[in-house]
Write a protein that binds this DNA or RNA. Structure first.
Lengths: 351, 351
DNA sequence: CTGAAAGCGCTTACAG
DNA sequence: CTGAAAGCGCTTACAG
């Protein structure tokens, strides 16, 4: 079926295509009566402007792209992990792009090796997106940032590690969050608190560890280095780590895992050691992912405002706020607040 | 920065733009030497063909869209459920589109009310996607199918309920899967098997119930209607349903939940009733979602081949297989096999 | 095997 | 407030 074009609408409304264009773009300088006629014709014909033509002729593509790391995504899938990080990021972006008449493109980017430059270069040249949302590690990749700057494509960095003047960012304070959770445990009376780290490929892992260390020090508690065990965000890694912690001569009375999924692994290890939670052992998670509510006891955790972050990032891109890299103007830096969700898995230690 | 166009490449290689076009599209009839020169020039210039221009001038847009229901998605988010259905569908589609040089667009569609026609019509007119992947309930929506047919846009229906001649589909047999799981429980020696249904807005919920009923009947077991309890795919709904089942005078020795998340709810109810799993009670799930491995005991469940399904659907769209609605030719119907994953949560009843 | 011309459906930059 | 012309960067259909 031949599609209906701006010419068909113009003919039916007996106006020029320019007038149709004005109406479709909500431009000023159209008499109400003309606008009415055009709208009527467009409605009757079921007209919708062709995106490709708009993009080619004009300066906007009505497309926002999200860059996601290819190998991390595939890894995540292969290791069958339950994180819904991407899903939440996407939800905010999809809803927001849709509301503004934009479209969301999900692009897998291979950040390892020398292909990045070629791949991202081609992506930007072919797509000409009006904005790009950068998830880790894209948000910290020098080549990606350079290419984006060179192409003049606005972008927002989601949860970046490197702050220094590299474009607008939207993030949360992982250090402060981990610190608050550790303070929560200390406040409950815990002195021996174990910590399970996340996958070191993510900057957040290091930040959360820092927060834990800072809070322990501020609380006057000396960290036994045996209390810090490596994990990689998987249930199994935390299961192993927690089992080791619980096998210590003086075992911790609380375990702070860097993700909810890992907290569940710690819970399983506790059950196997016949320790009740939170009676014998407190367990804290991080993320407030759906799985944090799928255990008994339900997990005390940190709520990451991922949907809010991607919603804001998308808005900035569409409003043009992200573009304001004015001479000397500092790029926007939005810190979104986290929340400690106190559920059932943490309590005061016995005695 | 002004982008590099086909003219720049043609000039540098000292050929016509048509030759550049041929090389970029891997068309025949180009001498190796010419091709070499063009490739060299394109590489040096960092040229990538503009998608909008290709789409406008040619017959392909290099875009595949996935239609996802808006309210179901928002509901899912609000109810904080842990299903990764969409994530898995998207993974297959993203990887496949990328491999073929295509791009994946995620479109939220509002299927309730009268807006569908306008919204989907505008989407197709504006985007002109080369193919559309239809997730439920898009795959069964008459207006969506009609619009797609009228526009001549190839599509694949993922997990549709209505089979009759409405375009190609890729799906799994939920009835057979539920039947196999029920047979598994019967084979273990269970006679009183409780069933928790899924959200009735999804066709799969009804199919799974049917499979359960069919297997019970085939096994010569009479179903007490108190054994079938309503759920909506959430942990809480199953927790309530399972508690009711366990409160029966003659309680079931096994519970088959229509999703993994619900199986975890059943597990929690069992723990509260001080019943061990699988010793006192067997619990089976459905989906093989990541959460099925996050419990102790790990869940026996049905693996849904979602990534395989979306991968195949995308391939069909890109290969043009989905387009073959030749006169009289029956649309492709691909049934992807499921797998019963026997883990720890199911065993023979005591005694 | 190669290329010159026309046109895809819009927006831009101008003119009136 | 409205419109005629040019052009965005490609592919199509055709000629040689």
């Amino acid at each position: 079926m031949a599609s209906v074009t701006i010419y068909d609408v113009a003919a039916r409304a007996a106006v020029s295509i320019k007038t149709v264009s004005r109406v479709m773009n909500n431009e000023p300088n159209v008499r109400p009566q003309m606008r009415e006629r055009v709208l009527e014709a467009a409605g009757a014909l079921g007209y919708a402007p062709n995106l490709s033509a708009r993009s080619l002729a004009g300066s906007r593509s009505f497309v926002i792209a999200v860059f996601v790391d290819a190998s991390l995504t595939l890894d995540h899938w292969r290791s069958e992990r339950g994180s819904d990080y991407l899903q939440r990021i996407q939800l905010g972006a999809t809803v927001e792009t849709r509301a503004a008449g934009y479209h969301l493109l999900v692009e897998l980017v291979d950040h390892d090796g020398p292909r990045v430059r070629q791949e991202v270069g081609a992506l930007l040249a072919a797509l000409k997106p009006d904005g790009v949302i950068l998830t880790p590690p894209s948000c910290d990749n020098e080549v990606v940032l350079e290419l984006l700057d060179k192409a003049g494509t606005p972008y927002v960095r989601l949860g970046p590690e490197k702050p220094e003047g590299r474009g607008p960012r939207v993030h949360m304070d992982d250090v402060a969050a981990a610190r608050e959770m550790t303070d929560h445990l200390i406040g409950l009376g815990h002195k021996r608190i174990g910590f399970i780290t996340g996958d070191q490929r993510y900057g957040a892992s290091q930040a959360r560890l820092e927060g834990y260390v800072a809070a322990m020090e501020a609380g006057g508690l000396t960290i036994d280095k045996a209390w810090i065990r490596p994990g990689d965000f998987t249930f199994e890694s935390a299961h192993t780590a927690a089992a080791a912690l619980l096998g210590l001569d003086e075992r911790p009375t609380a375990i702070f895992a860097s993700s909810d999924e890992m907290a569940l692994g710690a819970l399983a290890a506790a059950a196997e050691a016949e320790l009740s939670c939170p009676g014998d052992l407190s367990v804290a998670g991080f993320d407030d992912s759906p799985v944090s509510r799928l255990s008994r006891p339900q997990l005390t955790t940190i709520r990451q405002p991922l949907v809010e972050m991607s919603t804001l990032a998308t808005k900035m891109l569409i409003n043009g706020v992200a573009r304001n890299a004015e001479a000397g103007a500092r790029p926007r830096d939005e810190l979104i607040p986290f929340t400690l969700i106190h559920r059932v898995s943490t309590a005061s230690p016995k005695g």
